[in-house]
């Protein structure tokens, strides 16, 4: 019994040492080890894969989020998108153009967020714009369909 505990302690001490060395060598940045840029999510070519890569596959539809975007976008290169929510304690917001070549457009980590975020995205074709909001540790989502007459994603 004693011996097992001692072995475990030695082992964890050794791995802690390795991590400290990695941080010292600049291989790991302590403050941004996870959040730097989610290349898996941003490189995903299907909305479902992008959502999975940001851990948002299980987001529940919510009426407390409104995605505002034009019904028809004549220029898919500039589609104004607003995310308005009454959810308290918002921690992050993701915005996706679901049929874009790379659906994930932006992922924001937020503090002191006051319910409104607006940006402009490109859309390749008629599709849903999806917002995923993490609030109070839970995931919520809403969409708005935008009809695109001239796509703005190249190809």
């Amino acid at each position: 019994m004693m011996n097992t505990t001692r072995r475990l302690l030695l082992r964890s001490a050794a791995s802690a040492g390795l991590i400290a060395t990695a941080i010292a060598a600049g291989m790991l940045k302590p403050s941004r080890v996870l959040a730097d840029w989610n290349s898996v999510a941003f490189s995903a070519t299907k909305a479902a894969d992008a959502l999975a890569a940001i851990g948002a596959s299980s987001a529940a539809s919510s009426r407390d989020i409104v995605v505002k975007a034009p019904d028809i976008a004549e220029n898919g290169a500039v589609v104004p998108v607003e995310v308005v929510t009454t959810l308290p304690d918002v921690e992050s917001i993701a915005i996706l153009g679901e049929k874009n070549p790379f659906p994930l457009v932006a992922l924001y980590t937020l503090s002191d967020f006051d319910g409104f975020l607006s940006t402009r995205i490109k859309m390749g074709q008629t599709a849903n714009v999806r917002a995923v909001v993490k609030a109070g540790g839970k995931l919520y989502t809403a969409t708005k369909e935008v009809k695109v007459t001239v796509g703005g994603c190249g190809g």
Binding site: A35, D36, W37, N38, F42, A77, V78, V79, G97, N100, F102, P103, L104, V105, A106, L107, Y108, T109, L110, S111, D112, F113, D114, G115, F116, L117, S118, T119, R120, I121, K122, G152, C153
Partner: peptide
């Protein structure tokens, strides 16, 4: 205090624009 830490993709429009409210 960081209030927004954004990761962005190539799906942002040219000349990226953001507006948001901070409590």
């Amino acid at each position: 205090k960081t209030v927004l830490d954004g990761q962005l993709g190539g799906g942002m429009s040219k000349d990226p624009y953001h507006s948001f409210k901070v409590r």
